[in-house]
Design a binder for these strands. Sequence first.
DNA 1: GTCTATATGCGGATAGAC
DNA 2: GTCTATCCGCATATAGAC
Lengths: 221, 221
Amino acid sequence: MASDTKNRILDAAEQQFGDRGFAETSLRDITKKAHVNLAAVNYHFGSKEALLAAVLDRRLQPINERRLQLLDNLESQSGNEGPSLREIVRAFVSPPFEKQQEWGDTGQTFLRVLGRVHGETNDEFREVFMSEYELLYQRFTAALSRAVPHLGNADLTWRMMFMVGSMAFTMSWSKSIVLRDPTASLSANETIESLVTFASAGLAAEQPLEIPVETRRREVQ
Amino acid sequence: MASDTKNRILDAAEQQFGDRGFAETSLRDITKKAHVNLAAVNYHFGSKEALLAAVLDRRLQPINERRLQLLDNLESQSGNEGPSLREIVRAFVSPPFEKQQEWGDTGQTFLRVLGRVHGETNDEFREVFMSEYELLYQRFTAALSRAVPHLGNADLTWRMMFMVGSMAFTMSWSKSIVLRDPTASLSANETIESLVTFASAGLAAEQPLEIPVETRRREVQ
DNA sequence: GTCTATATGCGGATAGAC
DNA sequence: GTCTATCCGCATATAGAC
């Protein structure tokens, strides 16, 4: 069946892109792993780049829909003061990890793909990738700025970046961290709550107005 | 002069690796940009992979030395209670950004290279890269666990990962964030202090023991 | 140390039979 | 939709003259 071939290609591509990277993976690797013919990729997807886009879309769309759905729920159920910081952060952070569990083995490597993509700084790529996040960022920026009113716009932008960074890094590395330190193993739920705790506290923190010169001098020297 | 050629290659490679990625960059791109002969790369470095290692080493060694030096200073100047959390975090976070300033234009893209490298999950690559960090992590783990004694080992490991993630993401994206939102522009010092505030608060946060079931249910639905 | 020329292989993509 | 065979360019790396 056609859609079976398509899905096998998507699964194999996801695996390889996550483990070794986009440019480092050849279509021959993918089709071999998927047990399909080499020409099938171009027949079904058109090009290697389009295949990457399809790999991302398949998982990212449900993840981002879920984020917005959670935020909608929070906003419709909270009073005039709006949802709490922690709730908003959880709405943003948890969907990738929840979905990963839901998808089981084949979805497991997707978080690594996402982690890689977050580090991609190629200009054209950014344009395409970021435009998918436009709405998401607007909604969450608005919600967060209500929850943390003492932050200016610039500070909020930066702290959201810090939050995304901690999440992206966790997505790509969680498997290896666990391998290095077995005591550090956490379930998806524990990972989410740890991350939510960390990011919420970071977002809420008051910026010290100035660093005492004496202290600074001593440290820097 | 030989070392001039070598440095021009390193500069050009750094630029390309940062802008487009390792696999996406060809030696032809690099040598053309550096105005040196194609064969010079293999003469001076041996291989493309060895060139990447050289690009990383040139900047990473001073950065990590500086981190350890700052930590040494803090520990020798603090009493029995050890340095404060914020000071330790700053000792870890600030050196890449300080060095970036020091190095000016040619060092500018290096942070993007570093950001990419942090997202690299290839197994062999990790072994090599992580082994360079072994000592660094041991030292900072020990210092942090004194400063945040209420955290268990597992929690501390995870939160250090969150800290590294926010830092790595900031390194690779700071330029673009500024482009998207000019009000968000920060000097290196301001970036450092923002990041330090965020990570310190995140590390210090108390983990809520349990999430009220009612709240959780409402959110998840 | 620097250059030209080239070995050698792998890459994405496609034409065209079935 | 699936397959084989092939086009064609670009990749890293090196041999060998200067």
